[in-house]
Amino acid sequence: MDTILNSAHISPSIFSLRPDYRALLMIAENIPTGPSDESSSRLLNEAESHIKSLLSSQGIPITEFPHIFAWRETYKGFGAKPQKTRNSLEALTRRAAEGGLPRINRLTDIYNAISVKHQVPIGGEDLDKYDGAPFLVRANGEEEFRTFSAGEAKIESAVPGEPIWCDDVGITCRRWNWRQGPRTALSDESTRVLFILDALEPLGDDELVRAADELADALKGLSGDVKTLYQIIRAGN
């Protein structure tokens, strides 16, 4: 666990784009396998209720939720149109408010619920399908992203300048937190996971850590054997 976290790195070009960016990387091991269940569905229901309550009490559209607004502005900064390529937090928050959050598998359900509740983009990667340590860079346009479209395998090229999370094989997530690749996606059988929590101002470190702690607690609630470790990467470290 230490080796992967200590080897993770973020390109200075990312901090040139957003000096306030922080990535909390968490590794969780010994997670019991399983599909969506009552406990993960309950977390999703709670997240949906939380968003509906926020919309009712704050009286502002989802696009003006502080952290979502910050990510929309950041997407514009590297040339993406936030109306067409929504960051994962906005996409999930919209689903929570409208048709309801999807039930995918227990692990994905858990981190999606916590993402929405704490308003933090979160990604999950299966470490048994991962190669090396994670790193975040801005694409040069030659990187390939292997995905699926309408059930068919498809290869896309990253757009020059877009931030991409990678391992030693290639891209694992495009546009910071827009689209994760299927190669390292979580499944019902995933037991070792890398979680990536993305933060921009105005979201503070205290809320970022609260989200990580709740994620760790939810995973440890599945089994006493679950172990977690995290670190925060920011400009200058």
Rank of each mutant, 00 (worst) to 15 (best):
G123K: 10
P182C: 00
G59K: 12
N87V: 04
H67A: 09
G132N: 04
R94W: 10
S223A: 05
T93Q: 03
L208F: 04
W71D: 01
I4N: 11
R138A: 07
P66T: 13
I122F: 03
A158D: 02
E143Y: 07
L24G: 05
E48F: 03
N6V: 02
D109E: 09
S115A: 11
S16L: 10
R234E: 13
I114F: 12
I164V: 14
I27C: 11
W178Q: 08
K81E: 13
P82D: 01
I31H: 06
G124N: 13
S57I: 15
M1S: 15
G77C: 05
V159S: 06
L203C: 09
Y230W: 15
P102R: 07
D20P: 00
E162D: 09
A96R: 08
S223N: 06
K227L: 13
G124E: 09
D37W: 02
S13W: 01
V120H: 06
L127N: 13
S16D: 13
Q83H: 08
V159G: 01
A216L: 02
T172E: 07
D126H: 07
H67F: 01
G170M: 05
L200F: 12
W176H: 08
I62G: 02
S40G: 05
L54D: 14
D188E: 11
T85Y: 06
R22L: 00
I60D: 05
N177D: 06
R138H: 05
I14T: 07
I31T: 08
G224S: 11
A158W: 06
S149H: 15
Q83V: 09
P35G: 07
N140E: 15
L215R: 07
P12H: 09
N140D: 15
D225P: 05
I114N: 04
S115Q: 04
A47R: 07
A80N: 03
D37A: 01
I164Q: 14
